[in-house]
């Protein structure tokens, strides 16, 4: 067993894990963060995508011990105080969600993109989610959602301590969704 201390969605977690435990198992089974999904277990579908120190990784291929001391961000850390991020709201508004099983991983891949490139081109958006499989939507609405979110979010200010969270310019652009 190995002792690890990853910082997950802003909270430091202390745990003792077996060497073979994946980060996905750690998140889902130990922390009950079941938003990250397992669609294939071999890093081919992207449903388990989380951010490790701001970079998208497939959590089924990362060992929990590798996350020791690192910053892990999952879909559960995307909304703030119950308020959807502009990216999440764009997914709702664009009709980018059908069954929803790929959605958390898709949003985390998009978040990773917007963190490193707040104004991505369409090609860069496609490239960023090319490893996230979706069987329902045909991707078109997802591309629109990410494009719309990129237009709404501002770049983090230089030198700001938390550059991992692109701040929301406006998050009340919803035309519908939950009342």
């Amino acid at each position: 067993m190995y002792d690890i201390e990853p910082r997950v969605n802003g909270h430091t977690e202390r745990a003792s894990v077996p060497a073979g435990m994946t980060l996905l198992e750690f998140l889902r089974d130990r922390l009950a963060l079941t938003g990250s999904k397992e669609g294939c277990g071999i890093g081919e579908c992207g449903a388990c995508t989380v951010l490790l120190d701001g970079k998208p990784v497939t959590a089924c291929l990362v060992l929990a011990v590798e996350a020791d001391g690192l910053d892990v961000r999952t879909i559960e850390g995307e909304a703030t105080d119950g308020q959807l991020s502009a990216l999440q709201q764009s997914f709702v508004d664009a009709g980018a969600v059908q069954c929803g099983f790929c959605t958390p991983g898709m949003i985390m891949s998009a978040r990773g993109l917007l963190l490193r490139n707040p104004h991505p081109s369409d090609e860069e958006i496609v490239e960023a989610i090319a490893g996230n499989l979706c069987r329902c939507t045909g991707y078109e609405a997802i591309l629109r959602a990410i494009r719309a979110a990129a237009q709404q979010e501002v770049e983090p200010l230089p030198g700001e301590p938390d550059t991992k969270t692109a701040r929301l310019l406006r998050s009340d652009q919803s035309t519908g969704g939950r009342p």
Partner: peptide, 21 residues
């Protein structure tokens, strides 16, 4: 009308619980 689906909020936050979960 293009009313958005109201389960989308559960699905974009990871709150939606599937049998897998």
């Amino acid at each position: 009308k293009s009313v958005p689906r109201d389960d989308a909020a559960d699905k974009v936050t990871g709150a939606a619980r599937y049998t897998h979960d």
